[in-house]
Amino acid sequence: MNAFRITEPNTGFVTKKLTNIYHIQADGNSLVCALSARLKRASNGDPVAIGDVVRWNESGQIVEVLPRRSQLMRRAAKPMPDSYAHEQVIAANVDQVIPVFAAANPKPAWNLLDRYLVSAESAEIPALVVITKFDLVDGKPESAEIMSVATEYRAIGYEVIVTSAETGLGLEELRAALANRLSVFVGKSGVGKSSLLNALEPGLGVKVQQTSRLTGKGRHTTTHLEMFPLAAGGAIIDTPGIREFGLWDVDSADLALFFPEMRPFVGVCKFGLDCSHDQEPGCAIRRAVNAGEISPYRYQSYLKLRDEQP
């Protein structure tokens, strides 16, 4: 990853982010910086994201964020019910987004996967879907459904890797897909993002925990964003579990374009580009769903996301 080889003075790569504390890697050295008051004032939320290339001053304060080549964003949780929504950049300058889902414990919520994929499509970042904990369903009837959904997403054009940190299933394939790229893991708490990281790079010792036996959900073990370099080149950004993923900067009129399988049908409807693909007669997308060319579940995700957008 050439972004690690920044040789400009006082310029580096944000590799770890805690509340108001930024760990920066520059020319083989690492340092801890805070945010300058000027930069903080100029932004609604946090102006610095993990993966950003930043400049700092002699006081150890970040004073400038260099232009990003990509950014994965979501709608930030509102601090107050009446406050305005604003964007939150989860990671910057990433080469691929990796939505991580567990085959069981917690069960996959495919509509959340569609949110991640739409977000990645709108940011023009390639996505690779990873299903973890396959050992928990292997040999059970549930595994057939997991594999069937994986096949559906592959048919759309997404790469899907089924893994198990316990048995080592799919890890070699995943290592190859991660090499020489900056990837970001996203997913709900407890799906096994950090466990997968430990399995991919033994010796990292990232803290992991069992999911709650009572609720079957994760315990929010990872609480900060951190980048881990890989032996084969490239790096992974591990993120805390995301409970909500609201789309940001996606217009409902453009939404169908972020579903690759719907793209060929956009503009073909009776009402052309004015079709919202919901109730209109002569809608090409609805016809394709009825014909089995588009998954009804993906279409349902489209309708849900469209209703949420401005």
Binding site: P108, E293, Y297, Q300
Partner: peptide
Amino acid sequence: MNTRFTTQRIYTRSNGMR
């Protein structure tokens, strides 16, 4: 696209628009 999207999800059934 050769896959026909006609399989019902039971194990991962979501609340959808219930």
